[in-house]
Design a protein around this nucleic acid. Sequence first.
DNA 1: CGCGTTTTGATACAGTCGTATCGGTACGAC
DNA 2: GTCGTACCGATACGACTGTATCAAAACGCG
Lengths: 205, 205
Amino acid sequence: MCQNERVPKVVDRETRRGQVAEAIHRIAARDGLEGVSVRLVAAEAGLSVGAVQREFASKDELLRFALAASVDEVFARFGRFRIGPEGLTFTEGLRQVLLDLLPTDERRRAQARIWAAFYARAAVDPGFADVLAELDVRTREHLRRAFEYAREQGGLAPGHDPAALAELLIVFVDGLWLTCARLPEDADLAPQQAAIESVVRAITG
Amino acid sequence: MCQNERVPKVVDRETRRGQVAEAIHRIAARDGLEGVSVRLVAAEAGLSVGAVQREFASKDELLRFALAASVDEVFARFGRFRIGPEGLTFTEGLRQVLLDLLPTDERRRAQARIWAAFYARAAVDPGFADVLAELDVRTREHLRRAFEYAREQGGLAPGHDPAALAELLIVFVDGLWLTCARLPEDADLAPQQAAIESVVRAITG
DNA sequence: CGCGTTTTGATACAGTCGTATCGGTACGAC
DNA sequence: GTCGTACCGATACGACTGTATCAAAACGCG
């Protein structure tokens, strides 16, 4: 009777994993990845320690799942802005994506903090670095298409290598995102907005 | 006999604090800030736990001292490149400072990892964020002078607000530095070099 | 209903953490 | 020399950590 896995249970598992990832994100946004313990995650998710243990074999797997969830969320956020003939112009899409990164509400601020924590972890743990490296690959692929479109439309700064501009953008986004993570809640975002305007102009010419 | 503090002892303290900071940096570069424990720091510095405790009242003070030491080191590194009439041109100085950030040796790689760890900590601990915010202030002041010099020499991109360009540069440096922290040891740095060339051209016009 | 299988949450375990304590030791003053 | 003080390193403490174990409950199925 066990040769086919019970479907409803699988759904439960999936949703539960999501709950756990949410809990990790809440804790990490509050106390950093250092503050994430199995007991705390279980309590935050309203589960017992055992339940969390059954879902994830180790804490490492736990955190890796949370990182993957975060990556997907950020990628989905970027994907909301559609650049192309039937969507935004390249310049406007670029500007909106970058402005959307700014920590204008608590949700964004929390996400930036989580991101900073995972970045630090990736610096000393290849398993996490790989996840981010794969994100880089995906991002480059998307950017390549967007920049190709921009070039066709003549919306790219003349005399610049498009690939190099794309790399500039990737680095800039990382910096913007991580800078925002450490800004106080009531910080004036004007400098960052000015930097965004500058980078948009530098890329679109 | 104790109304004047004993001078030689003070010197010892200073050097010992330096040893401890070095030890923290080594551990943080290897395992991240999460791997830093008082016992490990003491062992790495060749001291007893008590000795470290006498030097630093708490672990927080310990880490804060290490961060301050790291900030000073990075600032000193930037200061090595002198831009001005009797030094480098703005363009060349800018390029060299940025290229110098790339993780071309183990020391630089370690520093980038430490920096990533402190960034993450600053995202959830205002005490650390303040140290970095003060660094921002100092950096802006230096950049203001350098950009002023560049403007006088006509070496700044026309039509751009110098202050906005400076903010762009700050964000870019953060991103470059932190991106490098998670690159594998044998990573090809060509994309980052290309991004640097692009940003130099974008700023200097 | 009753049985077999899973799932559950509590608890145990061994270890590490930051910090406090404390007897021994070295050293300067007289 | 002897005293007093400041420093030293070891060790103790309680609170955590991640993980393993296990009786009890819940559930599906004949």
